[in-house]
Amino acid sequence: MSPAHRPVRFGVVVFPGSNCDTDAHHAIGTFPGAGAQFLWHKDTDLAGVDAVILPGGFSYGDYLRCGAIARFSPIMQAVRDFAADGGLVIGICNGFQTLVESGLLPGGLLRNMGLKFVCRYVNLRVENADTPFTSTCDEGDLLRIIVKHNEGNYAVDAETLARMNANGQIVLRYADASGALTDEANPNGAVENIAGICNDTFNVFGMMPHPENSVEAAMAGGADGRRIFQSMIDTVLQRAEVAS
């Protein structure tokens, strides 16, 4: 088998309280060219996976700030090392919160403006299609994916925000059906309708909506989330090809 056609292996980290871990595992299983395995939070290595998913849920019950305890799990040192080497890491919802708490992504996630948990379809406008997580999209595409969180209100200082904007690190924003960035389309009050961001090396990505619940057209969540994972798979395969 040529390197370009070997299955791409995703590692899904399981923290106590993770509850979208099996959904992420299932989602990856719907891609013919990929496979997933669980990584236990007490482990200290990533078992050689090609990409890491920090799944949604309530790690450690979110009894402290969301993700604030998960960042201290033994596995997170391995994730930091992997990211420093350029490995692809996606944090979804609680995973996004954990990446922010770990310092792998800038900013913070505050309680929703409405002070309630919100589970709702949102439209995500692709702001930067030139990332390993959105390469199968075009700029301006709308992805319809469900958000479900209590603390998804992205906040960051003005200076960092300006830099992120300039770098193209703002990858996804909440938009209405026509693509306009309105307050009504913003489910949590996030600054500038931000739904997903990358680090400045574009290998670590966090998003509040749940692409893993949007990989099958027959299901209520639709299939738009496929494009996020397909982008990651394509990126891993391209890198493998270049390396070979």
């Binding site: 509850n19 979208c20 099996t22 959904d23 299932h26 989602a27 309630k116 948990f117 919100v118 589970c119 709702r120 469900i146 479900k148 749940h210 893993e212 619940n213 099958e216 027959a218 299901m219 209520a220 969540g221």
Partner: peptide, 24 residues
């Protein structure tokens, strides 16, 4: 019901608001 996660576990085919909830 928008305060409830109705989609986790990836089985939901019909969300709340209709006659019945349908799951695969």
């Amino acid at each position: 019901w928008e305060q409830y996660d109705y989609i986790v576990q990836a089985n939901t085919m019909q969300i709340p608001g209709g006659d019945a909830a349908v799951l695969r």
